[in-house]
């Protein structure tokens, strides 16, 4: 995703939630860095799992 696309996406997501942020204050680089870090999730095949809370048995 280009910087422009990412910025537009952030603006739209925040506006939809009623949050107003000056364009210069959008943490676009941080969002990009986080999205990159979350790509590590793709390395784990979890498609068969339920998205349920973790609960260890005592």
């Amino acid at each position: 995703m280009t910087d422009r696309d990412l910025r537009a996406w952030m603006e739209a997501a925040l506006e939809a939630r009623g949050v107003r942020v000056q364009p210069a204050d959008l943490p676009v680089d941080q969002l990009r860095a986080v999205l990159r870090r979350l790509e590590a999730l793709d390395a784990v095949d979890a498609s068969a799992e339920e998205p349920a809370p973790l609960c260890w048995d005592q």
């Binding site: 996406w9 952030m10 997501a13 925040l14 939630r17 949050v19 942020v21 959008l26 943490p27 941080q30 969002l31 986080v34 999205l35 979350l38 999730l41 979890a46 498609s47 799992e49 339920e50 998205p51 349920a52 809370p53």
Partner: peptide, 16 residues
């Protein structure tokens, strides 16, 4: 703000 913008499917994927 970053948290508000993360795709919901990433959250669900993280739970799985």
């Amino acid at each position: 703000l970053v948290g508000l913008c993360l795709p919901a499917e990433r959250y669900v994927q993280a739970l799985r």
